[in-house]
Amino acid sequence: MAASMGPYETWLTEKLLSLNPETDTDVFVTYITGILEEETTDDEKRESVIDLLAQIVVI
């Protein structure tokens, strides 16, 4: 990830790697941040992020 990460991006990167160390954090952090910045309802944002996280969580 770029050196200009803020506290949220740093936290999210660490959290994603804790869920799956093979996660491409450059892609996922950018995508999740984009979802959260969209002008959609909180429920739509929540559903989108949950669907995305389901793809990387190792069970």
Rank of each mutant, 00 (worst) to 15 (best):
L17F: 03
M5H: 10
I56K: 04
T30G: 12
D51C: 03
T23F: 05
I59R: 05
T33F: 01
L17T: 08
I59S: 10
V27P: 00
T40N: 13
L53H: 02
V49F: 04
E22M: 09
K15F: 15
I56P: 05
V29W: 03
M1S: 14
K15W: 13
D43W: 06
D24G: 07
E22K: 06
T40Y: 06
L53T: 05
Q55E: 14
T40H: 10
T23N: 09
K45T: 03
S48I: 00
V27M: 13
E37A: 11
E44L: 11
D43L: 14
F28P: 00
V57H: 00
D51L: 07
V29P: 09
D51K: 07
Q55F: 01
S18D: 15
A3Q: 14
V57A: 06
I32C: 09
T23H: 03
D26T: 13
D43V: 08
M1Q: 10
A2K: 13
V29N: 05
A54F: 02
A54R: 08
P7E: 15
L17D: 08
E38V: 01
L12M: 13
D51A: 11
R46A: 10
V58Y: 04
S4I: 08
I50D: 10
S4K: 05
G6F: 01
Q55C: 09
E22H: 06
S48E: 08
T40P: 10
T23S: 13
T41F: 04
V58M: 05
D42E: 14
E9I: 00
I50W: 01
D51M: 04
P21I: 00
L52A: 15
D24E: 13
E22R: 04
V58L: 06
D42M: 09
D42Q: 10
V29S: 07
G34Y: 03
